[in-house]
Design a protein around this nucleic acid. Structure first.
Lengths: 341, 341
DNA sequence: AAGTTTAACGCAAACGTTTGAGCAATTTTA
DNA sequence: TAAAATTGCTCAAACGTTTGCGTTAAACTT
C-alpha cells in the first residue's frame, strides 16, 4: 500500500498539469475549466486525497486549533465543560488540543509553552488551585493569542472570563439552611488564593448578616480540597465551641469526603448534620441522604460560553485590538437546587 | 507589541547570519562556534522564540500528535480514560487531539477524516454504540496510521485493542448474587452490536449453567442504554413470568435509570430487588442502597495501556510492518468489587 | 612552503499548500 | 481584420524549519 497520503503535487504530476491548477480546481476556482476540474476531482477522490493541514497551517498562518488547559480531566465538572468546548469548537470547524495541569503551576507553564509552540489560535484555561502568578498566561497577549478563563479564574483585571458567581448561590444555600431552622452553620471553604473561595465567604457573611445573625469567623475553615485536609477541616468544625448543625462544603468531592469521615466519626447525617454543596457530580441527586441541596455551576454552559467568546475574539481580532479596554466578563449566576429524594 | 512570534529567519537577519546556522545553534550542533551559539541563544531568549511546530511538522513529516475519538467525553469512564491518555502521551512528548462522536456513526467518519487531515500519527478509538462498519477506521492502515481500540472495541479480527473481559466480571457478579440466595437473576444488557454485550451474556449463561441452573433467555433483555429504553427493559423484566429478584445492569448509568424507575414503580430496592452493575461512575460507592456490587473496568489503566501500545506501534513501525500478523490484544480482567456501605 | 586537515558557516532544496502575477491561446468587439 | 477581452492555465514565491553539501579561511601537517 502507499504509505504516504496523496499530495497535490502527485495529482498534478499524474495529470500533467501544475500544482496550482490542482489546488484551484479543488477549491472550485472560477478560472479553471470544467473538464480539468472534473478530472482533478475524480483523481483526488480515487487517491483518497486529504489536504495536509500542517502545510495549510504553515501557509496560511492559521492553525484553526484552540488549546484547553485545565487541572483535571477526570473531574466531572471539567469533563463536561470540555465536552461542551469540543462540541462548540467542532461546529466552527476548530480542533481542540487538551492538556491537564494536575494543579501543578510548573507544569501549567510548560503547557503554555507547548500550546504556543503548537500555534494554537486561542486558549481556554481553568487555572490550577495553587497557581499564584498568571504571567505565563498573560504573556500570550503579546502574541495575539487570546485567553479566555473559565470557572477557576485568576483574580486579576483585564481578562476575558466566564465563571459562576458563587456568592449568589451561597446566599441561597445559607438562606435555605436558615429556613430549615439551622442557626450555627459551618463552611468548609477552598484555598484562599481562589476567587471562588472569596465569593463563597462573602455569600456566607452576606446571608448571615442580612438575617441579623452575627458572623462567627471560626465557622469558616479553609482546606486544600484533598480528602485528608477535608477530614481535618470537618473535625475542626465539629470541635468548635459552637458546633455547626449544617455545613456548606466547597464542592461535591469535599462533601463526599466529609460525609465519609462523618460516618466514621459516628455523626448522623441529616440528623446531627446536614450538608449543602456545590455540584460537580452528576449523580449526586441519585443519592440518598446527602447533600440536601447543591449549588449548580453549569459546566456545559460555561464551556460553551467560553468557547463562543474565544471564537468571537478570534474572528473580530481587529475590534478587540482597537478597543483594548473591552473584556468579556460573563457571569453565570449559580443556583441552588434542592436535591430530590 | 509584536503580534507575530519570532522566527529563525528573523533571528538570522538580526544577527547577520544564515538561518541554517541559527537552527543548528539552537540544536547545539557540533559545527557551530561557541560564541555564535551564545549570541543566538541569547537573542532567541530575548525574543521569546518558540519553534513553530507546524513548520517542523511539515518539514519532518511527523506531527507528534495522536488523536482520540470516543463517544462521550462527559461520561466518567471516558474522561478518566482520556486523562490517562493525556498523561501518558505527555510523558512521551506527544500532544493529543480529542473529538467525540456522540455515538453517531456518520460523525465518527467525519472525525476520522479530520484526524487524517491533521496528520495524527496514530489514533485511539472507542467506537460508538451504533457503529456497524469499521471501514473508516481500517482504511487508516493504508496510510500507516495505527489504530488502537479501547473499551468499546469492534468485533473484527486483526486489530490492536485493550479492553476489559466482561465475561469474568459477569461470572463473578452472577456467582455473587447466587451466593446471596438469588435464583431468578435478570440482566439488562446493551445493544447486540457491542462486543461487551456478548461477553456479558456469555458470562451470565456460563455462571448459571456452571451452577446447574437452567438458562432462561427471557431473563436477558437488551436495551439501547438510554433512560427511556432502560425503563422499558426494567418493566419487561419485572413483568416476566419468573420475576427476577436481582438484576445485572449493563453499566452504572443504566443502574441509575433502573433505580430511579424502580422507585417510581414502588419496588423496594435491596428488598425486592438487588442490582449489580459495571462501574463507570466514581462515587457509586458513596451511595446508599445501590448497587450492591460493581464490576470494575479500570478506565485509567485502559487509557494508559492503549497509549503505551500506540507509542510502541509508532516507534517500531518497521517491526509491526514486518510482522503483519502481530496484533496487540490486551485484555484486562474485569473484577467484581463489593460496594462498601 | 605547499598540501592537508579542521572549524565555522552559508547555500539551496525540500516538506505541501496557496496565491498574485504573467502568458498563451481563444473568443469577442468595433 | 486588427485590437481588446476573456478563458484556462503555468510560474514562482512564500510560510518556518531542517539538512546535505559546499565553501572559506585558519590551523595544522611534513
Amino acid at each position: 500500500m502507499q504509505s504516504k497520503p496523496a499530495t497535490i503535487k502527485a495529482i498534478a504530476q499524474i495529470l500533467g498539469i501544475s500544482a496550482s491548477t490542482v489546488s484551484r480546481a479543488l477549491h472550485d476556482h472560477a478560472s479553471i475549466g470544467l473538464t480539468t476540474k472534473a478530472k482533478v476531482k475524480k483523481l483526488a477522490e480515487e487517491l483518497n486525497y486529504e489536504p495536509n493541514q500542517t502545510a495549510i497551517f504553515l501557509q496560511k498562518g492559521k492553525t484553526h486549533t484552540i488549546g484547553v488547559i485545565l487541572p483535571e480531566l477526570a473531574e466531572d465538572f471539567f469533563s463536561t465543560a470540555v465536552s461542551a468546548i469540543e462540541d462548540t469548537a467542532y461546529k466552527k470547524n476548530y480542533t481542540v488540543l487538551i492538556a491537564q495541569s494536575h494543579d501543578d503551576e510548573a507544569k501549567e507553564k510548560l503547557l503554555v509553552e507547548k500550546m504556543k509552540s503548537h500555534r494554537v489560535e486561542g486558549l481556554l484555561v481553568s487555572v490550577g488551585k495553587n497557581t499564584s502568578s498568571y504571567q505565563h498566561f498573560e504573556d500570550l497577549k503579546k502574541y495575539n493569542i487570546p485567553v479566555v478563563y473559565f470557572d477557576r479564574i485568576p483574580g486579576i483585571p483585564n481578562i476575558h472570563y466566564v465563571a459562576c458567581n458563587m456568592e449568589t448561590g451561597t446566599i441561597e444555600a445559607v438562606n435555605y439552611l436558615l429556613r430549615k431552622g439551622h442557626r450555627v452553620i459551618g463552611m468548609i471553604n477552598g484555598p484562599q488564593a481562589m476567587v471562588a473561595t472569596g465569593e463563597r465567604r462573602e455569600g456566607y457573611i452576606s446571608a448571615m448578616t442580612k438575617n441579623r445573625l452575627k458572623y462567627d469567623p471560626s465557622l469558616i475553615v479553609s482546606c486544600d480540597l484533598t480528602e485528608h485536609d477535608t477530614q481535618r477541616a470537618l473535625e475542626q468544625l465539629l470541635n468548635n465551641k459552637r458546633r455547626p448543625t449544617a455545613i456548606v462544603t466547597f464542592n461535591d468531592y469535599v462533601a463526599l469526603f466529609a460525609l465519609k469521615h462523618a460516618k466514621k466519626l459516628n455523626v448522623k447525617i441529616n440528623e446531627e448534620l446536614e450538608l449543602v454543596s456545590y455540584a460537580n457530580l452528576p449523580l449526586i441527586n441519585y443519592m440518598d441522604n446527602i447533600p440536601v441541596a447543591s449549588v449548580e455551576q453549569f459546566p456545559y454552559l460555561q464551556g460553551q460560553k467560553a468557547t463562543d467568546i474565544l471564537m468571537d475574539l478570534l474572528h473580530h481580532k481587529s475590534t478587540a485590538a482597537s478597543e483594548p479596554g473591552a473584556f468579556y466578563k460573563v457571569i453565570i449566576e449559580s443556583q441552588l437546587v434542592e436535591n430530590k429524594r
